[in-house]
Measured scan of single mutants.
Amino acid sequence: MASDGVVVEIGKVTGSVGTTVEIPVYFRGVPSKGIANCDFVFRYDPNVLEIIGIDPGDIIVDPNPTKSFDTAIYPDRKIIVFLFAEDSGTGAYAITKDGVFAKIRATVKSSAPGYITFDEVGGFADNDLVEQKVSFIDGGVNVGNATPTKGATPTNTATPTK
């Protein structure tokens, strides 16, 4: 695992066909100046998982989280898009600690492993708008004895992609 920078880890949970599971997305290594904004994309298989919603985690402190935390689910493109932009203008609602960034709610549709993997990152910046190093650890849903650990090695991303 990367020793510096922010680590975004997609949790690994267990479920069975027809059940709804909650998959946490963790941030670790949050910089001392916090995270003022970030955007990134995960990939998944809508034939295996139906993403039914995404909720902000406990490290989102904006009293009205829909102003700073936004997501979009595109089953036709097989992606989930995340956007966080601190909304106070003063840094008061920045992410300042490690913990759960988001909770992905999904219904298991198939007995195949439900991988959720890193696809791309736009950027991560602290309260001074300084770009942060970030790496990703894939996860998803274990169905029966299947284990979604494909790509469990962190993917280092030093520069934003478009």
Score class of each variant (00 low, 15 high):
L83N: 01
V134W: 00
E86W: 00
E9C: 05
T66G: 08
I59H: 14
P24F: 10
I54F: 02
N156F: 13
Y74M: 01
G99W: 09
T20F: 15
C38K: 01
G99C: 06
I59L: 07
T71I: 05
S111T: 12
A152I: 10
V17M: 15
A94K: 04
V81G: 02
K67S: 10
G57W: 13
I80H: 10
N37G: 15
V25E: 02
N37R: 01
T107N: 06
V41K: 00
K133P: 05
A158M: 09
I52C: 07
F40C: 02
D45N: 09
V48P: 07
S3A: 15
V6H: 08
A85N: 00
I60T: 14
I23F: 05
A125F: 00
F101K: 04
S68T: 07
A112M: 02
P24H: 03
G91V: 03
V17F: 15
T161I: 10
G15Y: 09
V108I: 10
I80D: 15
I23W: 15
D98T: 10
A106E: 02
A112R: 13
I54W: 01
I73Q: 08
G18Y: 04
N47M: 15
D76N: 02
I23S: 08
A158R: 12
S135W: 03
V143E: 10
E50Y: 09
F40N: 03
G57M: 13
R77E: 03
G144Q: 08
P56Q: 07
G15W: 14
P56L: 11
G144C: 15
N127C: 02
T147S: 09
G144I: 09
G123F: 00
L49D: 02
N37E: 01
I95L: 04
D138P: 11
F42L: 07
A152L: 12
Y115H: 07
A102I: 09
G151C: 10
P75V: 05
T117V: 08
V13A: 07
Q132S: 05
A36S: 02
I54Q: 02
Q132K: 08
D55G: 14
T96H: 11
Q132F: 03
C38P: 00
A106Q: 05
F27V: 05
E22P: 12
S88T: 04
V21G: 05
V81I: 10
K78M: 04
D58F: 15
K12H: 10
E86D: 01
G57I: 03
K109L: 08
T157P: 12
T155S: 12
G99D: 13
V13E: 06
D55K: 08
D55E: 12
N47T: 05
G123L: 00
G89P: 04
S110Y: 04
P63H: 08
I59P: 07
I59S: 12
R28T: 08
T71F: 02
V13Y: 08
E131R: 01
L129M: 03
S16A: 12
I60Y: 15
V100N: 06
F124H: 00
K12S: 11
A158C: 13
P56R: 13
F42Y: 02
T147C: 13
T20I: 14
S110D: 11
A152W: 04
G139Y: 13
A146H: 08
P160G: 12
I59V: 14
E120G: 03
A158I: 10
G5C: 06
Y26H: 08
A125V: 01
F124G: 00
Y74D: 00
N64H: 06
I104K: 01
K78G: 13
Y115M: 03
G144S: 12
I52Q: 04
I10P: 06
G114P: 06
V8A: 05
G91F: 05
I95A: 10
N142V: 08
E86C: 00
T153G: 14
D55M: 15
V108T: 11
G15N: 09
A72L: 00
D70Q: 15
P31Y: 13
K150A: 11
I59E: 04
K133A: 05
G89I: 15
R105K: 12
T96P: 10
P24K: 03
F124T: 00
S68D: 06
A92K: 08
D55S: 07
N142S: 12
K150T: 10
V143Y: 11
P160V: 12
E86K: 01
I54K: 00
P56I: 05
I35Y: 02
V121D: 15
I79E: 01
A92R: 08
D4W: 05
D55R: 08
K150V: 09
G57P: 11
I35N: 13
V8C: 15
V130D: 03
I73S: 04
T117L: 09
E9P: 12
P56W: 03
P65F: 13
V141E: 13
T159I: 13
N64L: 07
I51M: 02
V61Y: 09
R77S: 04
P65T: 14
P46S: 06
G122Y: 00
D39Q: 01
S32L: 07
V121I: 15
V17G: 04
S135P: 04
F118T: 05
D62S: 15
V6C: 02
T117N: 11
E120I: 02
E50N: 11
D62Y: 15
K150Y: 08
V30A: 10
M1V: 13
D55P: 10
K162T: 04
S32C: 01
R105T: 10
N47G: 13
S3I: 05
V25A: 06
A85R: 01
V6M: 04
S88E: 02
S88A: 06
S3V: 03
S110C: 07
K12N: 04
F69Y: 11
G29Q: 13
G99H: 05
D55T: 10
Y93K: 15
K67I: 09
T66A: 08
D126T: 03
K109H: 09
Y93M: 15
T14M: 04
C38T: 03
G140E: 06
N47F: 11
I116N: 15
K133N: 08
K150R: 09
N145Y: 13
D76S: 04
T149M: 06
G57S: 10
G99P: 01
Q132I: 04
F118V: 03
E50H: 08
S3D: 03
T117M: 13
P31H: 03
T159W: 14
K67P: 14
S88F: 14
K33E: 02
I104N: 01
V81F: 01
K67D: 06
Y44N: 04
K78V: 03
G18C: 06
D119Q: 06
T66V: 14
T155I: 10
G99N: 14
A106I: 08
K97P: 12
F118S: 07
G151R: 09
K97S: 11
A106L: 10
T157R: 11
F27Y: 14
F101R: 00
N37I: 01
D58N: 06
F40A: 03
T149K: 10
K33S: 03
A92H: 11
